[in-house]
């Protein structure tokens, strides 16, 4: 295995939300810091930097991963998808719109990570039960909402993608 000193500057090239991006990272720099401060995509947030809260979750080659538990250099050549890539053009994507309808966020700090886990989950689990959704979401901490709106939003999007009409409004 190649060993490089912790503070060696490295060039990292990756695909961020479909666009090739290049930046400088010391070999010890976390992927989360690289995305936020080097590439300027500040939608990914840091809540604990030890892999528990889930706020920094991004998709690495389509798989939801903690950006705080990866080094930037490990992302070399990979496809990284973050919250900034979830929109449908300028409009909110269906998942985001459902979150809005269901008041599935308050401060919005944990939301980006949750959206990324949900995005991967819905791709792989088109007909989830509520327990499936709760199990998937248990890797994320939200302090504001009590999770109700989040669970409802994910179940609704799953139903919608299977062809059910969306709810018009919450409450």
């Amino acid at each position: 295995m190649t060993r490089i000193a912790a503070n060696t500057p490295c060039r990292v090239r990756l695909i961020l939300n479909g666009k090739e991006r290049v930046g400088q990272a010391e070999s010890r720099m976390l992927l989360s810091d690289f995305i936020r401060h080097e590439l300027g995509a500040t939608g990914t947030h840091l809540g604990c930097e030890h892999g528990v809260c889930g706020a920094c979750t991004v998709r690495v080659d389509g798989v939801a991963s903690r950006a705080c538990l990866m080094l930037a250099v490990q992302a070399e050549g990979r496809r990284i998808d973050t919250v900034e890539g979830l929109c449908d053009g300028d409009a909110l994507g269906d998942l985001q719109a459902a979150f809005k309808r269901h008041h599935a966020l308050q401060c919005g700090f944990c939301t980006a990570g949750i959206l990324n886990s949900c995005a991967e989950f819905l791709d792989k689990t088109p007909e989830p039960s509520e327990l499936d959704v709760r199990d998937m979401l248990s890797g994320h901490l939200c302090r504001c909402t009590g999770y109700t709106g989040i669970v409802a939003a994910v179940l609704e999007v799953a139903a919608q993608r299977r062809g059910a009409p969306p709810e018009t409004s919450h409450v």
Binding site: A41, T42, G43, T44, T82, V83, E84, L86, C87, L92, Q96, F99, K100, R101, H103, L105, G108, F109, T111, A112, L115, S169, H170
Partner: peptide
């Protein structure tokens, strides 16, 4: 629906 969510959901907070 909350006006705050438009930016927050895009990662534009």
């Amino acid at each position: 629906e909350r006006v705050e969510d438009n930016a927050l959901l895009r990662g534009a907070g």
